[in-house]
Amino acid sequence: MDLPFLWNTARELIAGVPLMFQLVSLSLALGLVLATLVALVRLSPWPVLSGVAYGYVYVFRGTPLLVQVFLIYYGLGQFEWIRESFLWIFLRQPYWCAILALTLNTGAYGSEIIRGGLQAVPWGQVEAGRACGMSGWLLFRRITLPIAVRQALPAYGNEMILMVKATSLASIITMLEITGIAQRLISQTYRAIEILLVAGAIYLLINFLLTRAVKALEHWLSPHLRDAPAPVLPNAALVH
């Protein structure tokens, strides 16, 4: 085993981590906003709007992400009016195309997760909130949203991992994130297996850290599931 080579490869590949991190965090953040809006629209009483939201989710979950990336990166340039509009400043850059595709994709999957979380809020909790005189935004902010977030978190953690893995597709549209750099190194050195194994190890490490972080967040958000802390009473005997 050629340790110096593996070490050098790892160092070169790690240079792609910041870009990957940008792609993931930006599209997850934008996607979360989109997902929440779509979930609320789908649960809204207006059939046309909720139908449109359903159509969006259906199309983006039913097609491969690669098709979505290609449609945006290669496809949109087919239209003259897009190339002449201000949007072209963004859409001609692979970076923004990747972000747009990833955002739309995670928005579709995320909206289903959030919808599930919202629908799983026990009715009694909402009723109790109403009984205390809360309504509308206050009820949503204090009761529905916190419970929904907690219930949606495990599934959303999976979605975050899927997004980390999905960023590798950005390499196909010339982005030099981890997979892109790996490809460049392969064409320079022809040592595909070693390079791909190092790249895989980096992704694995990132995903491992991500699952840990989500677990910690879940723990923090679920104080009611934890054991009660042991009472700290130095002279407990005196109380009785």
Partner: peptide, 14 residues
């Protein structure tokens, strides 16, 4: 935990 694309490359090159 590893991107599918990477696995496909691994088999393709490997």
């Amino acid at each position: 935990g590893v991107p599918d694309l990477l696995v496909i490359y691994l088999f393709y090159f490997g």
